[in-house]
């Protein structure tokens, strides 16, 4: 019981577990789900997990935010602040993730207009799927 409490109290370890859970769930969604939007959401989860992982690396239990305020001594700050480098990196990668997501959603909107479905196995499989235009042409012929 005390072990579990110790683990639960360790914020860094728990954050790493959370990040792992995000990545696993995201990979599952990106690989096994058929709907393109859900695949894209899964990808967003993977990216979120990676970000959380990197930020959690810089955490220091009982530390302070890495902002150097007047009145702090340099030695104390160096010993007690969280590591700021991972945070700086994650800022960039959040933005990259969002832009990738936006591009993918835009492409899936175009593909929906063409095929009338969001199923990845129909749109992105190797079999030729009828586009909406072809379907309409077929209906008119009948």
């Amino acid at each position: 019981m005390t072990d579990i409490l110790l683990i639960l109290g360790d914020t860094q370890l728990m954050s790493l577990f959370t990040a792992a859970a995000f990545i696993v769930v995201g990979l599952f969604a990106a690989i096994f789900l058929d709907n393109i939007i859900k695949k894209i959401i899964g990808i967003a989860f993977i990216e979120e997990g990676a970000n959380l992982f990197i930020v959690a690396l810089g955490y220091k239990a009982g530390g302070v935010v890495p902002i150097f305020l007047p009145g702090m001594s340099a030695d104390w700050f160096a010993a007690n602040s969280a590591y700021p480098l991972p945070q700086a990196l994650v800022l960039t990668s959040i933005v990259i993730g969002a832009s990738t997501l936006a591009v993918m959603l835009a492409i899936s909107m175009v593909l929906y207009k063409k095929y009338g479905t969001l199923s990845a196995s129909e749109i992105l499989g190797d079999k030729k799927t009828q586009t909406l235009a072809e379907k309409n042409a077929g209906d008119n012929n009948e």
Binding site: Y59, K60, V65, S81
Partner: peptide, 27 residues
């Protein structure tokens, strides 16, 4: 909680506003 307030700000905007809005627009 992980002592990264600036990242939290960005994530709050991107994660709670921009990404859901993009998704909602796509849907």
């Amino acid at each position: 909680f992980l002592l990264a307030p600036d990242v939290a700000l960005t994530q709050a905007i991107v994660g709670t506003a921009i990404v859901p809005v993009f998704l909602a627009m796509a849907i």
